[in-house]
Design a protein around this nucleic acid. Sequence first.
DNA 1: CGCGGACTTGATCTGTCTCAAGTGCCGTGG
DNA 2: CCACGGCACTTGAGACAGATCAAGTCCGCG
Lengths: 220, 220
Amino acid sequence: MDLGFSREGAVDAPLDRAARHLEFDQRATVIDEGDEARFIYLILEGAVMMSKLLPDGRRQIIELLGSGDVFGITTTDTHDCCVETLRPTRILCYDRKTVDGSQSLQSLITERMKAQICALHDHAVLLGRKSAIERVATFLMRIVPGRGGSGCIGGPRKEDNANVRVPLTRQEIADYLGLTLETVSRAFSHLKRDGLLVYGRHDEVTIVNVCRLCQHTGSH
Amino acid sequence: MDLGFSREGAVDAPLDRAARHLEFDQRATVIDEGDEARFIYLILEGAVMMSKLLPDGRRQIIELLGSGDVFGITTTDTHDCCVETLRPTRILCYDRKTVDGSQSLQSLITERMKAQICALHDHAVLLGRKSAIERVATFLMRIVPGRGGSGCIGGPRKEDNANVRVPLTRQEIADYLGLTLETVSRAFSHLKRDGLLVYGRHDEVTIVNVCRLCQHTGSH
DNA sequence: CGCGGACTTGATCTGTCTCAAGTGCCGTGG
DNA sequence: CCACGGCACTTGAGACAGATCAAGTCCGCG
């Protein structure tokens, strides 16, 4: 079973001979705010979160990324956000100069960036206009492999449950969804009470009926 | 005086012979949700807003774009957001095929996309974590030509006022900032009462001290 | 068994939304 | 030239979703 934030299929990495291969454990820091922006990163396997801090400590998690996604993109010469792994993660690390010189690498990155822009658009709608329950439902939908995108495929079906791992703490989910930890917890409880969710072991959750959950995202 | 959402300097447009030139009035629709995604657009002059709707009518304005910015980017074959002009606007309109064939055009677009991703990151922080006043202050800062970016340049100065045009209605600002029209209006009144803002004619506003306003953005 | 961290749940508070009047401004038509 | 209407905006009062504060509870681990 897939663990979310990832596209299906293998990641084809051009010029991987020219790249540095990095391996990280769970909860490792890949980039810190202020780091010099020398590299572009491509996730081969795993998942990371990208976050920004306000001076008074408020945090917003800005993107959740999985295999195939790129990060380290900036217009300045330092990074303005930090990136941490959510799971053990393998990353390819290209020097900017390498990227500038490679046509195929550039078009791979551009393609990824397009997808990420679309995701950021959707996330802006979530942050700007959705209720707490809708945010959590949308978040859960995004974790379901192959269903996070534009929504329901086909009509509601009898058997449509999904077992997902949620590799984020409540606080992290809150920081991603622009809520507090308590509100996220209450939303989970609410969805559970309504029979949409069943908790499993550890960080596992069963979505009883994906299509029914989807009705709560506000997007359908 | 600059009207905001725009970088300084001329827009150099590669392959402009291959592109269609479009001119729009104020408040014209360039793209509607559901339109076929055949083109990539480059703003030569003017400003547009890109927005998304939820099925129940809630709207989020996702990006404000000015000269040099690109739009029409999507991973699907239809557009999932709509784009309207805020001012009379001249746009270059490239066929996707043209873009795919041109190295220089692609790198221009990639460069713009990077900047837009950074802007979307900042906007996510705003939507997820900032108070109403901070949102409005940040928005106003963004409109000040050359100051919208990473923040204060140098320390506070005596003379640091700026005259800006706000080519959006309160409702549009609200939809951009994830607030209601009334809350935006109250925030404006609040900033005015504190002597940070003076209203001019029409949609003109004088920011009495840019650096002082900047202190209210939450980012400094 | 007991500790600590993540999570849940409850009670209360508050910033923003909602609803409802205004006010001011501009263009139109008498 | 002024009355009128419409629209954008402002302002107030009250409601409410989510934040904050404060106990718990659960569970893995030493």
